[in-house]
Design a protein around this nucleic acid. Structure first.
Lengths: 230, 230
DNA sequence: GGTTAGAATTCATCAGACAACCTGAGATGC
DNA sequence: GCATCTCAGGTTGTCTGATGAATTCTAACC
């Protein structure tokens, strides 16, 4: 591996990327020390200040840590990938499948834990969902809000937050799914798809029947997952 | 809000933190431009190079973006919190509950999708788990590996990755849980807790019986969740 | 073998200089 | 009046050099 001088703008970004790639490729494992600023400057063909700035960028990304008098040490070999990025590089089927299994279990917990306030929110969102028919974006957002209310009724904040990440990431794909259903003539012109199933979900949660809530929710979600698979 | 000169070491870190706090507090909303380097230097009582390094750190963290000739612009008001950090600030019960519901559903999928190779891995890890008895850390790691194999047999990579984050985050807590079980004398001296249940999980997956796999897994996981709640 | 002091190494900060880029205002041409 | 061009001022990008602060290493001493 050789290093030519860096001569493209901006140099700091290029140097940071070069170093990041080297770290990710294992040249400097976690715990090891980068060459000193002066040596790196020689190696990369850039000034010491530029090296320092590049190292600051890596430090800001959590990859290295500077210790005055000692050196710059690698503390991570790659930036932690956040869940949103992970979901974005996954197949839609996989994402949808995980989202669904989360909601099925959440619906069961919701049946056990729902409050009167949860029920009021669910009913309101069921109505809002029906009212949004005809406007795809509004409909998707109303649907998202409805399902979020189901998961929120499980009263587990980790679950709620996790589900929210899935929902936000999936939103563009949901619009595509709606288009796919149109293309397959799976939506009657004026019918709210899954309206009965959604009402049944709310009814099971109201009744505190976890098994029914899980069953109804699973059945409803399987419909859209099947379309996605085709 | 006033700014005294910064005179503590290291200045770059302090300046970056000061700016980060200001951004998070809404002084510069997304899309807006920070004051110029020279102005910031005056404001913070530090040199321009130090300002630049602080800004590089913020850029590395994804909060700002530099445009030569224009200025430095805020592109995010707070670092995205990764899932690990989110789990770390949640209650153990909530985390455990979500982890469990993921695994229950994963076990059901595993029963439908397991390959011969999956089964071989499961058997091997079941044995390794039993063999690790007597060494708490080794036992926990063997247990983690066993459950990871269950989820892996569902053949959904998002699920596998998601579950892995939960496992890694929960590992310290699992050691505590083991200690709690000891304190409550819930572990017979030589018995492998849950050995029968774990074997039953593998058997249900081998048999391709999703309902049984889900039931057995849920029952087993409920045991430890209950201890956590007490 | 343990301790101490000094040298060497390395990062931290500042100042200054020049280059490259962007933006906005004013002038010019059609 | 509108479109285009030019220029000045502002801003970031990069480099050099100097000094200070912190850590590590080495040699001398007890």
């Amino acid at each position: 591996m050789t290093f030519g001088p860096l001569r493209r703008n901006p140099l700091v970004g290029q140097a940071a990327e070069r170093l990041r790639d080297q770290i990710a490729a294992g040249r400097w494992p976690i715990g090891t020390k980068l060459p000193g600023e002066v040596a790196l400057g020689r190696e990369l063909g850039i000034g010491r200040s530029t090296v320092r700035e590049a190292i600051r960028a890596l430090a800001g990304a959590g990859l290295v840590e500077s210790r005055q008098g000692s050196g710059v040490f690698v503390i991570a070999t790659e930036p932690t990938e956040d869940l949103t990025a992970r979901l974005r590089r996954a197949s839609a089927v996989e994402v949808y499948e995980v989202r669904n299994l989360i909601e099925v279990r959440a619906a069961m917990l919701a049946a056990e834990r729902r409050t009167d306030e949860d029920l009021a929110v669910l009913e309101a969102r069921l109505l809002a969902r029906a009212a949004a028919l005809g406007d795809d974006e509004a409909y998707i957002d109303a649907d998202i809000a409805f399902h979020a209310a189901i998961v929120a009724a499980a009263h587990n904040e980790v679950l709620t937050d996790l589900f929210a990440v899935f929902q936000v990431t999936m939103r563009p794909g949901l619009l595509d799914l709606l288009a796919a259903m149109d293309a397959k003539d799976l939506r009657a012109t004026a019918a709210d798809p899954g309206a009965d199933a959604h009402a049944a979900m709310v009814a099971a949660i109201r009744a505190g029947d976890a098994a029914a809530a899980g069953r109804v929710t699973e059945k409803e979600l399987e419909v859209s997952l099947r379309i996605l698979r085709d």
